[in-house]
Amino acid sequence: MSSSAVSLYLDPQIRDWVLFPITLVMILVGILRHYVVLLLQSPPKKLPRAAIREQRALTRSQILRATSSNSSIPPSFYRSISNTLAAAFEAGTYLKDGPPSDDSPSTPPNPMTDPAAMDGMMSGMKTQMVMMVPQMVIMGWINFFFQGFVLIKLPFPLTLGFKSMLQRGIETPDMDVRWVSSLSWYFLNFFGLNGLYRLILGNDNSAADTSQNMMASPFAGAAQPAGPQDYNKLFKAEKDNLAFAEGLYSWMGDDVETRLLRKYGKL
């Protein structure tokens, strides 16, 4: 501080009435947001049995295919399972709404018409709003009351490249980069508090992952994570996969006697 005249002297009141309040408000809002999100989360919707059956039908053939090149079940049994599955996929037995009629146009289902999908989207939007709104309010608050404030001086020197990161809101070409402006302090907190939230709220809290969400894309989370699927199409594709797997099929029992005899030294 003593070395030069360019050095600034910060009023301790700035520390007490600006620096600490901003930090405290951000921590508290993060914790509050965690609990609001917990309140907003509706319990996962229960699927009716037909929907579960439709969803899991694919795993059946995946299990069959996974072991087909070294299968533990004899050929006749493998073939009967494989053929039954292929026939069922072809006929659409596993579809939730029964086998489709022939002349129906094969358009992918519209997410807006399915109430279940709508519910999922709404809950995603709600969570996203809880994330966004407080951040916007705090930023507005800081911009309105503390614009252009210099809050702290970092205890280590930095290169000029950090100027736009640390002195946002203060347009001075020759101030030392170590001074941090109020808006930049807000951003530092915004991205840096995750560790603290994790300490306070535990590992999978909903306060910590905000910044990752926001950085990626604010409304990406609102879209369906895996859009509504056209199972009919998936089943048709799976049928071809089954045919491929049948080509690869070989039974572990084919040469088991040779393997055993060799292992025990008889061959």
């Binding site: 050929p75 006749s76 049994f77 088991v256 006697e257 040779t258 008889k266 061959l267």
Partner: peptide
Amino acid sequence: PSDTPLPKNLNLLDELATER
């Protein structure tokens, strides 16, 4: 009924099984 082929070296197998 399942058209499984007979294993080869049946005598050797018999011997080995008895031994084990």
